[in-house]
Design a protein around this nucleic acid. Structure first.
Lengths: 105, 105
DNA sequence: ACTATATATCGTACTGTTACGATGTTTCGA
DNA sequence: TCGAAACATCGTAACAGTACGATATATAGT
């Protein structure tokens, strides 16, 4: 005989997958740094690349990934493209990550 | 000539990687469900597996992963093993995830 | 028009994650 | 001590994420 599992409120599969997908996007050191940088002001791709000490095309891909999720937005300024925080949730999420994911969660 | 990147406070690589590793662990729908369940009370592996509608050995691996990170702890009770939240940061992180990663971040 | 700068994309190789069946270990009760 | 239940681990196959060089597109200045 198997004991019955207790009654518990479950989040729906869709909700869980949505949250997991969001966390997956944030679960990369370079993308965390990009968000942290953009929270201090909008910047062009080559400036972000310089601050991250990485090739531009790598930064591009991380930016594209985050833009596709609605986390970031971009606007062209002459030859450069400036990225900025788009999601209003992103700063509070970032603060929470700093508060809870660092020095051994 | 390349314009200089502005002066900006950067989180260290170690900090970023630590935070990313923590997020990676949470970035899975089943593991989110397990944490959500355990926040409502400690349970045995087979009960968690039943609630998640998954095989025991899959749940075991997710539990082990989270226990190895210090997120969960376990104690044996007769034939069963009960898992519980170990990290004091986990509940607040979970609340933040629910608040900021759902319905399109 | 031509060139240099800035950004974006593509194909591919590499690496890590996840699922799954099979097998091993621990504990309880007959 | 034997069998069943509960939990854990292993090997492997499938899959996703990442990095990298090469290449493409867009813009400004000459």
């Amino acid at each position: 005989m198997t004991d019955q599992a207790p009654d518990i409120n479950l989040l729906s599969i869709e909700t869980l997958e949505e949250a997991a997908a969001c966390l997956k996007v944030m679960a990369h050191p370079v993308r965390l740094r990009i968000v942290d940088i953009l929270m201090q002001g909008d910047l062009a791709v080559h400036e972000i690349a310089e601050l991250c000490d990485m090739k531009q095309h790598q930064i591009c891909e991380h930016l594209r990934l985050m833009q596709n999720c609605g986390l970031l937005s971009s606007r062209r300024v002459g030859r450069t493209v400036h990225y900025s925080i788009e999601s209003p949730h992103l700063p509070s999420l970032m603060h929470c990550i700093k508060a809870n994911c660092i020095t051994r969660l």
